[in-house]
């Protein structure tokens, strides 16, 4: 599998590590309920099909990417940079 990096072109997956579902970017506000934090931390859609996920280009430019990939075929549907600006809830 190779990931089409927005600036560096096709890169082998061995250069990356995968953190999982990109829903990790939507961290609840600090004031949110205990339940919301549990859901955020532990529950996943885990779809068979297109999946938005966070990949870290560890052995590359150290960027965080959001890769939309089909979990049944490994086809990569889109790649974009993850938004790393601070939010009220904080970053994963």
């Amino acid at each position: 599998m190779r990931i089409p990096h927005p600036d560096l072109g096709l890169r082998d997956i061995e250069e990356f590590t995968c953190l999982g579902d990109a829903c990790l970017c939507e961290r609840p506000q600090a004031s949110a309920d205990h339940r919301d934090f549990c859901d955020y931390l532990y529950l996943r859609d885990n779809p068979a099909g297109p999946h938005r996920e966070l990949w870290f280009h560890e052995h590359g430019d150290q960027s965080w990417l959001i890769v939309t990939r089909d979990t049944c075929t490994h086809e990569i549907l889109s790649v974009e940079y993850a938004d790393m600006r601070p939010t009220e809830g904080g970053r994963p």
Binding site: D39, L43, R44, D45, N46, P47, A48, T71
Partner: peptide
């Protein structure tokens, strides 16, 4: 490995990745 898929049919999310 299909627990997540079956749970989704019942409208549930699980602490599981396949």
């Amino acid at each position: 490995g299909s627990s997540g898929r079956l749970a989704a049919m019942a409208g549930l999310r699980l602490p599981i990745e396949s």
